[in-house]
Amino acid sequence: MKKTRLILADDHQIIVEGLKGVLSTEPDIELIGTAADGRELVEMAFKYRPDVIIVDISMPLLNGIDATEQMIRDGLKSKIIILTMHNDAMYAARAFDAGASGYVLKHSAPNELVKAIREVLRGHNYITPLVDGEIIRGYRSGSNKNLNLSRKLTTRQKEVLSMLAEGFTAKEIGKKLHISVRTVEFHKYKMMEELGIDSSAELIMFAVKHKLTEP
């Protein structure tokens, strides 16, 4: 029997261990790796090219939705399931627009995650019943202003923005991303220019308001 190869990305170890327990009961699923941040996930995904990736939204360096968008844009064929605490139509819509195939809430029953894995492997999309389908459809048919604003930013800019919102200094961001402080500042002011924002504080407030990153 061919096993489904799976990668799990979440920065909370207690969640990772709990999911390992859930997945270990499924003889046809093999967990081949775990990642604690978005950049590590992207590197691991292209190295191992699993069948399925389960990823949290709120992760350091690169959140789960932006990591999903980057992987799909760069040609990864893995099915991606967002596993999150956010019972929010906007997050769900952004996840599917980024290329995810599934959206499951962390407080759902464990067997729902397994069901989602089965569904996406069949080529179907899966969204938890706990997120109102009518809200999702209404959001998708309405204004996509937040999504369009997000698409103005490059992947590197989103990384910088995410870390700024987490409270890292330009020096700390440069060290973690292996770029100079000057480059960090360039990305920050480029984002401010693109979005019509006048200060660093407004930039972070914009990111939180439009759910482009997790503070």
Rank of each mutant, 00 (worst) to 15 (best):
F46D: 06
A45C: 08
H107A: 06
Q70R: 12
S162I: 05
E134V: 11
G75C: 03
S58I: 00
S58H: 10
S141G: 11
K171F: 11
R5Y: 02
I135P: 00
D132M: 09
F168C: 04
K106A: 04
Y126M: 03
F186K: 13
G123T: 06
K209C: 03
V16A: 02
H107C: 04
K77D: 13
I32T: 12
P215N: 08
T128M: 13
A9F: 04
I54R: 02
K190G: 00
G38N: 05
E194G: 00
G102F: 01
V42C: 13
L19Y: 10
D11P: 08
T25R: 15
L62T: 08
E119W: 00
M44E: 13
A93L: 07
L41W: 08
T25M: 15
D66F: 04
N63C: 07
K145P: 00
V114I: 15
K79G: 01
Y48H: 12
L164T: 03
H187W: 04
M205D: 14
I57R: 06
Y139K: 14
I173F: 03
A170H: 10
K106E: 05
T213Y: 02
S200K: 12
V55W: 01
E119T: 02
K188I: 15
T155R: 10
V184L: 09
M71P: 07
F96P: 11
L203Q: 06
D74G: 01
N125F: 08
Q157L: 03
A9W: 07
F46H: 13
I15Y: 11
A95S: 11
I65C: 08
L212A: 10
R151I: 02
V120N: 06
P27I: 02
V181D: 15
L130K: 13
K115L: 14
E26Q: 15
I135T: 10
P60T: 01
S24P: 07
V131G: 09
L6N: 05
Y91E: 12
L113H: 09
M71R: 02
L130I: 01
S180K: 08
K20P: 09
V160K: 00
R73I: 01
L19V: 05
G133M: 13
T25V: 12
S200W: 00
G133V: 05
E172L: 09
L153V: 01
Y189A: 03
I173V: 02
I29D: 04
L203H: 08
L195S: 07
L105V: 02
P129Y: 07
F206S: 05
P129G: 06
H107L: 13
A67W: 05
R49K: 15
A89K: 14
S162M: 07
V104E: 09
K158S: 08
V131F: 03
E166L: 13
R118T: 09
K211N: 10
I14H: 06
L41V: 06
S108E: 14
G133W: 05
S101N: 11
E166W: 10
K77Q: 13
R118D: 14
M163R: 00
G174R: 11
M59S: 10
S24E: 13
D11S: 04
G167M: 02
